[in-house]
Design a binder for these strands. Structure first.
Lengths: 234, 234
DNA sequence: GCGCGCCTGAACATCCGGTGAACTCGGCAC
DNA sequence: GTGCCGAGTTCACCGGATGTTCAGGCGCGC
């Protein structure tokens, strides 16, 4: 789509080996992305917060901080945000599995070719389409949602939501009227590639209703779509 | 929650090594899918046409026909229908990249564990989810059907339908004027491979008519096609 | 007028979402 | 390090919503 001038998305590459980070980022730039490199865990977390990338390419073998730990921090800082592709060494089967459970969007086994990585990045971002939802404030009269500030107001009163609660509400509200299955919500809000149990969604919906709805047993904003899932009604 | 549902989808496994095909299909069946195995390219293409699987697990190394060629044929046969997961040997990296470019949904590198493959299958199918028609709103004047919201309006009045009722109506309306047998409706709406009794369809049609038709005994939208089944007339 | 197929009503079986509560895990204060 | 706390997850239970079955009667097409 957009030419090389207007970037296709911003990507953070985390690898302790400068050569790899360098080559990879160069390929990504050539493919039309904006790319940054971080060489260790702490600076990766920092960069993720500053830069707000759309995707992070993360080497699991990092000095100082475990790669999975980095991933968890990035995710928990802003629970839904960047997609993550893990780089794993051959045979780290357990790491792979753990990584995917923690919600990596994909992984690439080393050694890999830069072309393959780029293809993976393309695939993941294509699948997630929306290169990040817009951060415009959502105004539904009594209910106002500010994605940038991550605040919600109901009748000018602030409603304090947890990270997941906010992400869930924001996602639903960004697609008003559309019905989603619990699995879809898991995909978009939790970013889990593999889920065990969708009842987590149910519970979070309940808490949202408890905090938001005038009468939680008679929801006005978050409707149940029986046999399907939920729908936000403005 | 993911209990022993009806069937989660139909899968075609293509591998020239009987052992692999066998093990994989067994795991898939245990995970709740219907699975078929094909041992070579031509029969894979044939099976894909007959069976219309939701997903194809395709070994790239096939005797007789190149795996990528098989993939192309399957894809071109019916437009983009089945999702495709490629099995590739380590190091066949160019194939993998080409595969992804050609529109494979994922690939798994051999050797892989069956559990991992199943997880991948889950992920791909859930990601695509839609398992069906586009979400465009259907407008027939007084009757409007919104698949995304899963809502139906009749003369600007919302008609509340259950999940099955909605699916049935949406399917019929997506093929206006076309007559379907009860078995076909079972196939498409219920996704059963084997059904004992098609009278379920009859009952659901009745309820739909009751909710939709101005005069349910004189149906306007859902016509009976004697000796065949039903037809939606816009 | 006949027979098959469709409609009807209601009973029956099943599923699903809401709920409360327990449990895990990290973060934080001490 | 220890222990508390909050967020997130998991689980079992329950009641109502939903889906299925069935027998009888009616209507359609021949």
């Amino acid at each position: 789509m957009a030419g090389p001038e207007h970037s296709r998305g911003s990507i953070l590459v985390v690898d302790d080996e400068p050569t790899i980070g360098d080559v990879v980022s160069r390929y990504l730039v050539r493919a039309g992305y904006r790319a940054r490199v971080a060489g260790d865990g702490p600076s990766a977390v920092q960069a993720a917060l500053d830069q707000r990338p759309d995707l992070v390419v993360l080497d699991l073998m990092l000095p100082g901080m475990d790669g999975l730990e980095v991933m968890r921090r990035i995710r928990s800082a802003h629970s839904g945000r960047p997609a993550i592709i893990l780089l794993t060494a051959r045979g780290e089967e357990s790491d792979r599995v753990i990584g995917l459970r923690l919600g990596a969007d994909d992984y690439v086994v080393k050694p890999f070719s830069p072309a393959e990585l780029v293809a993976r990045v393309d695939a993941v971002l294509r699948r997630l389409d929306t290169t990040g939802e817009p951060d415009d404030e959502l105004d539904f009269g009594a209910l106002r949602i500010d994605p940038a500030a991550r605040r919600v107001h109901l009748d000018d009163e602030e409603v304090v939501l947890t990270a997941r609660e906010f992400d869930l509400l924001a996602f639903l509200a960004q697609h008003p009227g559309q019905a989603f299955t619990r699995s879809q919500l898991m995909d978009h809000v939790w970013r889990y590639s593999f889920y065990s149990d969708t009842s987590t969604v149910t519970v979070h919906i309940r808490r949202l209703r408890f905090k938001l709805e005038p009468d939680p047993s008679q929801p006005r904003y978050i409707e149940t779509v029986w046999g399907v899932g939920y729908r936000f009604s403005p």
